[in-house]
């Protein structure tokens, strides 16, 4: 079994938002919504300001409150630990939306709940997610953590990295190289 994850290099990311646009096109994200977004975080005091730019999205948590809280099983773990919503099973109760500490989900105008899918349709064809393949600075590494020789496994062994709010206890699988 694979365990997909993403490592995003905050030292490379310039915050151009190409990943956001690529996702919207690839996945027909309705106008006014987004499945990924760019956060800029400034730390410290002038003149030693430190800027961190992050491309954020659903963390495809291994212990997902959204999957746990879903009454119908519409939110589920698909291949490789990717967290997905099956629209035909979703009743739109929004329990998963309030359960997500990353606020990564929204109600699609058609009524079901939607969010990042790690572009599972592309991954199944052996391709990278749209955001990963479009990034001009190659800030993303997408791959399988179970495979110890994969690029992502290697980079997580060698580079210092973090996840967002690990204290929320959901085992997020988006890693930020810092």
């Amino acid at each position: 079994m694979a365990r997909y994850a993403m490592a995003i290099d905050t030292k490379r990311c310039v915050g151009c938002s190409d990943c956001v646009a690529a996702c919207q096109t690839e996945n027909n994200v309705p106008i006014g919504f987004c499945r990924d977004w760019i956060v800029e975080e400034m730390h410290g005091q002038y003149p030693t300001l430190d800027l961190e730019i992050r491309s954020e999205r659903c963390n495809h948590c291994a212990d997902s409150p959204c999957v746990r809280s879903c009454p119908t099983g519409a939110s589920h773990y698909a291949d490789g630990g990717i967290v997905l919503v099956t629209p035909e099973e979703c009743i739109g109760c929004k329990a998963c939306i309030v359960s997500c500490p990353y606020d990564a989900r929204y109600v699609h105008p058609e009524g079901y709940v939607d969010k990042c899918t790690f572009c599972i349709h592309r991954v199944k064809e052996g391709k990278d997610p749209a955001c990963v393949s479009v990034c001009p600075t190659h800030a993303f590494i997408f791959g399988d953590l179970e495979d110890t020789n994969s690029e992502i496994s290697k980079v997580l062994r060698t580079r210092k990295n973090k996840t967002l709010i690990p204290e929320a206890g959901t085992e997020p699988h988006i890693f930020y190289l810092i």
Binding site: G15, V20, W37, I38, M42, R105, V107
Partner: peptide, 17 residues
């Protein structure tokens, strides 16, 4: 000091702000 902004303009209806 810590300052955060979403520069890609996320405003998902029902979620933000």
């Amino acid at each position: 000091m810590q300052e955060l902004t979403i520069t890609s303009g996320r405003m998902n209806p029902g979620i933000d702000p």
